[in-house]
């Protein structure tokens, strides 16, 4: 049957921003942040980011730091190059509780 663990993912939307702003590149694996600014000058690129959910007001969870990094936004995993990640500013939320 379902091995769902209800305590795991509810957290994302309930985490409270701390007010500390970082570039997405500066987050470490496992951290959650609320996107507060997307400053991508290339319009086409900016639209692509927004269409994938990398848009002001969304919460992201960094699944794996690196270049490219992997993050979770809107329930799916996104691979993202460093060059784009540094255009995104997030308000870091309190460390997600350990889940496993």
């Amino acid at each position: 049957m379902s091995q769902a663990n209800p305590s795991v993912n509810i957290s994302l939307n309930q985490l409270v921003p701390t007010g500390e702003k970082f570039s997405l590149c500066e987050l470490s694996t496992g951290q959650v942040g609320l996107i507060v600014e997307v400053n991508e000058p290339d319009q086409e690129q900016a639209d692509r980011l927004k269409a994938l959910g990398l848009c002001v007001g969304r919460r992201i969870e960094l699944l794996k730091a690196g270049n490219p990094m992997i993050l979770r936004v809107l329930g799916s995993r996104i691979g993202l190059a460093h060059r784009l990640a540094k255009r995104i500013t997030v308000d870091a939320c309190h460390q997600a509780q350990c889940c496993e």
Partner: peptide, 12 residues
Amino acid sequence: GQTKPLVLELPS
């Protein structure tokens, strides 16, 4: 020019 930076969905 540089290659377009990667952004893509990694489905389950």
